[in-house]
Design a protein around this nucleic acid. Structure first.
Lengths: 112, 112
DNA sequence: GGCTCGCTTGCACCAGAGTGCAAATAATGT
DNA sequence: ACATTATTTGCACTCTGGTGCAAGCGAGCC
């Protein structure tokens, strides 16, 4: 039996730190998921007008969804003339997901 | 230049399939995150009454949060006398997160 | 059987999120 | 300067989600 009470707070804090609600909130909308999937597919900076096609809503709504994803660090935006092109931060997103998984594993590993 | 147009739909579908909005919806609330973190820490089935301590709300609300997490497959519940003990499906959760990361990597790998 | 404890569920309420429309801003072309 | 295209933002609306309170249900205890 290892010291079960030795570092529980640290474990909890690390997990709670890794599992950022804002991150999940950004991805809990089906339209935002389809945006992410679309950008993952094309993998090159895409204008708002083009992205609108994959969502069934007004472009103003799409613009707002894009802002939410950008603020969460999931997308990056860059102006190109009068277009604004969005691209998926694939590496960063994948890393974030794996860090969460790692934090979970570390928590359960401490008890065995 | 590889065949860029060869399997974009499959890629998109695989990602959209892996990135389930319901999963993120279950984790987009700060109280639910603290529940997950608490259960990851203790790592043993915990009663609702004990879980309530980590959230600042009424136990009825906690019960509802637990149901949401259970329905999403993130927690498991088992009756023990008059207690209902919840535990975190750590392995399953970590696997889900890694599968998402893998699906993302696969999408971007197809283009290079 | 009645009682208490532990948890869930119905109800009403309030705050927040998504949406469309229209106006505002940004950048380019004429 | 004006018109046009691309995107963002303000506004109002609706719908969903989280919350507390109170009632209901399930399981053990007297």
């Amino acid at each position: 039996m290892t010291n079960k009470k030795a570092l529980p707070e640290r474990c909890n804090a690390a997990l709670a730190d890794a599992l950022e609600p804002e991150f999940f909130k950004a991805l809990c909308d089906p339209i935002r998921i389809s945006i992410v999937a679309t950008l993952a597919e094309t993998c090159e900076p895409t204008s708002v007008t083009d992205i609108v096609d994959c969502c069934g809503i007004d472009f103003s709504g799409v613009s707002r969804h894009l802002k939410i994803l950008k603020d969460a660090g999931i997308l990056a935006a860059e102006r190109d003339g009068r277009h604004v092109r969005y691209r998926l931060e694939t590496d960063s997103l994948a890393r974030t997901l794996r860090e969460m998984a790692d934090a979970l594993d570390r928590c359960s590993a401490q008890l065995s």
